[in-house]
Nucleic acid binder design. Structure first.
Lengths: 130, 130, 130, 130
DNA sequence: GTGGTCTAGACCACG
DNA sequence: GTGGTCTAGACCACT
């Protein structure tokens, strides 16, 4: 498994790890039940603290992407990729619906939201390049 | 105070009442400490059940927009409107950030999200007109 | 191999097939590397769609109970049965621990849980008999 | 807010904090939107590391009991208590259903599960008294 | 070997 | 002031 960390990015290290592992799972570069590097090994590998890797793995487990067994290691969860994609779609729809709910009881305009979205999105894209 | 109810809408009547009152508060059409029509009066006015109006008022109170004094009536809460707007802005930003997080670990495109947003937004607008 | 299907059950047919095959594997009625009836044969036998049997076999393979070789058929996986039992035990222990966690921060009583367990268990038993 | 920690307990400190805060929320000792002690203050108060309190608060937020705003502090979430109780009930039912699913494809007996449940439950009760 | 918990202290960002 | 992140190293429990 290959993880590349940028220390200059505004995205926290544990978040960078999470994003890359999720992407690899969705792209089948990491396949179901495959074992992940141990937290100590990965920490040593990318020269960061064990705790930081642990935080990334903890959240990945909480979100259902991997399972961790004490004394054994962490494994890619055996979860249908289609399901993950569907969940992501549904979650985006949920968030958009909540935003629209707010718009309906405020004077914020649709266009302002899209503008903000583009702004935030651009930010993150640039950060990734640092 | 003017409330318009649509019986054909998918939005529950108490929710329609809430949304319109909140909008009027945020637009300063209803100002702080102004008294609202009594539950019975409003129910009679828009020809719906007293219970439905009560539910709307209860939730508005619970969400801090109005205060109700037994035997005296309901009043627009003296909550800082700027605070409400700020909270709404922040919440929208939160949701957008979460959406962007998802985008970064998937192959869903920014444009698809905006398209979906416009689609959902249009839907709700139409519902409101029913 | 013997599979009995109930069309009146609330459990989907493919799930009924899965449960019965797993039970037979765990009880050594189906032994390691034993060949399973072909999808078409089993479908014809129990008078259901080939797709339904395929779904059951697919999930059994995905869960590691059987292996399917294209053009050759499906076989009971040579997975250590002790391991499966241990995993099941551990999973039950996990779930019970989570239930106990909830109990500790609520006023729900241990006895209520056992009662609910007996109730749910009875339900499923009855469903199986449909 | 009062939190009592036992260093001799087998329950992790962050878990003890979580359990006590959840209990206080459910008992209305902590009410909606009430501010919680800052992580630093609570850590100092009960003489543990800031990180340990943070882990407890993080998980409480993830489970929807509290909300945390950077630079402002942590607050009891404005969530209906009835809803929390219902969720807990539902979750227990879910776990029991999963256990029963496992039982149906194994030779583990219902009684063994209840015995294990009583055993685990007793364990935790004793730990609490340490 | 593996992960699980905890510490004491650092520096940054938000308000 | 608040929380958010990260570190380097400790000790324990499970496999």
């Amino acid at each position: 498994m290959k993880i590349i960390i940028s220390n200059n990015s505004d995205i926290p290290i544990y978040e960078q790890i999470k994003l890359q592992i999720i992407k690899q799972i969705l792209n089948n570069e990491l396949i179901e039940n495959e074992i992940l590097p141990s937290i100590r090994l990965l920490a040593q590998d990318i020269k960061i603290s064990v705790m930081t890797v642990k935080k990334a793995y903890d959240e990945l487990e909480q979100e259902g992407y991997i399972v961790t067994r004490q004394g054994k290691g962490s494994y890619v969860a055996s979860k249908n990729l289609e399901l993950i994609r569907e969940e992501q779609q549904k979650q985006i729809e949920d968030y958009l619906t909540k935003i629209i709910d707010i718009l309906q009881s405020s004077d914020i305009k649709k266009e302002e939201v899209i503008e903000l979205f583009n702004y935030l999105y651009g930010d993150d894209k640039n950060e990734e390049c640092n």
